[in-house]
């Protein structure tokens, strides 16, 4: 079982996060933590603020209020590329691949933050720049092997079917060797077989690389199966937080999903 892995200290802690767009309150005083090496599920009905929460964590949205503590450093806001440099990677609900580029190039961009040769070396493509390029190519090829996408290495991603695009996107996030991986509905729109593959990849990533994962997912069976812990959001508020079994029987969660008459 999942519990066999040794789950460590708190890696990321969000406290009292509030976010609004114009008059719409997307998140209200949300507090939870993510522990090292765990798989955390974030669930909730549509419009509950799940994607907004991920956007806050990786710096794309700046919360109106609240603190984020990542690896012991507290901050209120940072730019997305800074988050990336600190080991936070993510995938998107609507695939955000670079459509004009090949699978290989897409995954290589995930390693851009680790490449340091300046443009003059790049232009010459000699010595250090070339060594660096080849070194990262080797690392990327390992990811390509891991995700079993060798055959589409040189195909422009715009031409790939949906399920493979999702897989390439995961590959791009993995290429950055993140400590914290945020997955926004990694299995949306997939058939059963593709879902099973994706679950396997997620668990393998967690197992083999010790990557901490926070994922948003609507398929409850998947969430209950692969997550160590689940956070439930509804209308921008946290309504439950606990083990899958505990959450499943929580009355607030049942009300949020099934609807309840407010009288």
């Amino acid at each position: 079982m999942n519990n066999a892995r040794d789950i460590g200290d708190v890696l990321l802690k969000v406290e009292d996060i509030s976010l609004s767009f114009g008059g719409v309150q997307a998140l209200t005083d949300v507090t939870f933590e993510v522990r090292a090496r765990e798989v955390l599920g974030i669930i909730g009905p549509n419009g509950a603020g799940k994607s907004s929460m991920l956007n806050v964590i990786n710096g794309f949205y700046h919360p109106d209020k609240g603190r984020i503590t990542y690896k012991g450093t507290t901050r209120t806001k940072m730019r997305p590329h800074e988050a990336a440099r600190q080991g936070i990677a993510r995938t998107f609900q609507n695939i955000a691949l670079f459509k004009g580029m090949s699978t290989l190039d897409n995954i290589m961009t995930g390693r851009n933050t680790m490449m340091h040769r300046n443009f003059l070396w790049q232009a010459l493509y000699l010595g250090p720049a070339r060594t660096e390029e080849l070194e990262h190519r080797r690392a990327v090829e390992r990811i390509i092997d891991f995700l079993e996408i060798e055959a589409i290495r040189k195909t422009p991603v715009g031409r790939l079917p949906y399920g493979l695009q999702k897989r390439v996107e995961l590959g791009r996030a993995l290429a950055a060797e993140p400590e914290l991986l945020l997955l926004d509905e990694p299995m949306a729109g997939m058939n059963l077989e593709e879902k099973e593959d994706m679950c396997r990849f997620i668990l393998d990533v967690n197992d083999e690389f010790g990557t901490t994962i926070a994922l948003i997912e609507h398929d409850m069976a998947v969430v209950m199966d692969i997550c160590d812990r689940v956070v439930v959001l509804d209308y921008g508020r946290k309504i439950a937080d606990g083990s899958p079994d505990a959450v499943r029987t929580n009355q607030d969660v049942i009300d949020a999903y099934l609807g309840v008459s407010h009288d």
Partner: peptide, 20 residues
């Protein structure tokens, strides 16, 4: 690296920023 960064910005600047 630089060419890939350029193309990433071209194809989807938001995603490019999020991957660093």
């Amino acid at each position: 690296r630089i060419g890939r960064a350029w193309m990433a910005i071209r194809d989807m600047d938001v995603a490019a920023e999020i991957i660093g």
